[in-house]
Design a protein around this nucleic acid. Structure first.
Lengths: 364, 364
DNA sequence: CTGAAAGCGCTTACAG
DNA sequence: CTGAAAGCGCTTACAG
């Protein structure tokens, strides 16, 4: 029995009628084709697609088999139009560490694609006038089902407020719980910095300096507090003249190291805010003829590819960045699916110290 | 006069009827709202959206003004469904150089977003079984309007054939014209390598070695040919024992340098296949106590962030990567818009040498 | 130059 | 458990 079609198709469909439809042809099948093949209404096919419980098991199995056989996948555009969603997630970032972004991207995509989502990327510039409008446009135009926010822009509360207003799900990858736990993937920067402190204390350093990131970043503060407190716990101090503010980049690392190494007595160990900064410290040491780690111990943060490329290789903190991307994606999908489970707690992620050649006992 | 609505809206629209509609409310306007406001049919609004010439100038101006005032942008999903396209471009890559990918991404996005497109990213693995099926799924499911292929996967002809079969526009960023010119953004690797040869010859080196990339990559061959020929032009040779094959990564750089530096006499200059490989050479030199550039000149390729971070900083070839991303995007949009202009020639992009500290005259 | 109708491929009410 | 109708927001023929 063939259902009658109310609206005749605009053009002849390549889809065969009922007889020999075994080949998973390249041609696109629609929900109507599947319905016809299965001798049910498109609504029932729709129910199978959306895993509705209100389909007889036998029916579901038969329809599923047909979908599999002809290689049918529902059109996300049409679904999206009807659902008022897009099956698209966004990644909003302004982090200059390319490897960090790529790793998050790939971690997120691994989870996303498995569930029929794709990822749209949006690099941004917080200092731009169009910063928020651009994101608003992206979210509303594309009806994004959710966005992942990477540090440092993840610390921006205006952005979070905007997304809330737009009723757009989001997850902040961040080092401070600035939001409801369910919106967070937390990296434990404070505890990380404490691990560095412990490492340096164990090596026997007493004149320890730190280059912190921009004071406007919460992660900078977290790392400073964690580092300072942990040193204190071990009877060591971080004197003010041994703390300078950098910008999480190479150039500031050079300049800050210059400052620190001209103190007298100079520090025997420097905890750079991140690997980029550490590379800057390397450069200053190189120019001054200081040997690492004999004359100076250096520790970074991130374990970017740079860390193992530098000579000597850099001791640093490694974050499970891909995992963070995956966790953020999973969290977002849970929200988008509206699975009203118990309120989620924050995903927490633990870095660990990678000891390489740049840290050793003081020789003075 | 108010047009009568044939289908009553499912829910009351927040849009005000005709009186006080000045505020660009957050609520989504549709083409119907604009039509009502302008007192024309939705088809006419559609014509304005699509810049059809068949609209009286006065009408167009009035409708445009209304769209601007209420902040209307057409829904890409609905447009896409009707147009059978998505206003989405894809970026397919397997290049391990994160900074390269990010720069392409941002270059492309700059051009794309201006024209209402977004970018969907797709990292891939040529050695995976699902490599091609995954891309096919991405392209057909999302109805991608085009994809950008980055090296080395851009050299894969099966992938290009697949995209052709799917009638999906693509642009290959590549160093060899493996395709019709209109599908290419060409980086001139051969000429680039020649510049390196010239630099080394000028410095007075005669025992020059090269670490080439995987022989399966066309770019490796290009760089080798370009380098070798250019040396020949200057009366120099690249003896077989001074050419070793690496893998464009750090580890192989270490190993290959080991090999090269154990030759006797050893080379006074090494052209590493890329910056990663050059970093490997640095490490071997470091372990052997060789000073760069006094004992050994090293030149890289890419000008990745690493190049300026190494000590001494690395002389290398810089490619205008962002421009390449932009060019690829522009080319793709031209195709998607079906502007039947004269057949396009390949976009060609020229790298240049960045001389830093790692290259100097031989001291032997 | 402008519009009414049918359609893109899916879903949400609403019935049975 | 299943289906016919109306709708998501836009466009393509086809008329005038």
């Amino acid at each position: 029995m063939v259902k009658k079609t109310v609206l005749k198709p605009r053009a002849a469909r390549s889809t065969a009628g009922g007889a020999d439809v075994a080949v998973p042809s390249t041609g696109k099948h629609t929900i109507n084709d599947i319905a016809r093949l299965a001798n049910v209404s498109k609504k029932t096919v729709s129910r199978v697609i959306n895993q509705s419980p209100f389909v007889r098991e036998e029916t579901r199995a038969r329809i599923s088999e047909i979908m599999r056989r002809v290689g049918y996948t529902p059109d996300p555009q049409a679904r999206g139009l009807a659902f008022r969603r897009s099956f698209l997630m966004g990644l909003v970032y302004d982090n200059p560490n390319a490897q960090y972004v790529i790793n998050i991207q790939e971690g997120a995509l691994g989870a996303l694609r498995r569930n029929g989502y794709e990822l749209v990327v949006h690099p941004c510039d917080r200092t731009s006038e169009d910063f928020l409008p651009e994101i608003e446009q992206l979210v509303t135009r594309q009806k994004l089902d959710g966005v992942i926010l990477l540090p440092p822009v993840s610390e921006n509360d205006e952005l979070a407020a905007l997304l809330k207003r737009l009723k757009c799900h989001y997850v902040r990858v961040i080092s401070v719980p600035l939001d409801e736990p369910e919106n967070l993937v937390l990296s434990m920067d404070r505890q990380s910095a404490a691990q560095v402190a412990e490492h340096l204390a164990r090596l026997g350093h007493t004149r320890i300096a730190m280059i912190v990131g921009p004071s406007t970043y919460r992660s900078s503060q977290e790392r400073l507090i964690g580092f300072s407190n942990a040193l204190g716990d071990r009877g060591l101090t971080l004197p003010p003249e041994f703390v300078v503010e950098g910008a999480y980049n190479f150039e500031s690392g050079v300049a800050c190291a210059e400052l620190l190494l001209s103190r007298s007595p100079r520090p025997t160990a420097i905890f750079a805010g991140n690997d980029e900064t550490a590379a800057g410290v390397y450069r200053t040491a190189y120019l001054r003829g200081l040997k690492i780690p004999d004359d100076l111990t250096v520790v970074g943060f991130d374990d970017s590819p740079l860390a193992s490329r530098l000579c000597p290789s850099l001791t640093t903190m490694r974050q499970p960045i891909r995992d963070m991307g995956r966790l953020a994606a999973e969290r977002l999908m849970a929200k988008a699916a509206k699975v009203q489970g118990p309120p989620l707690s924050a995903s927490t992620v633990f870095p660990h110290l990678v000891v390489r050649e740049s840290s050793g006992p003081p020789r003075i």
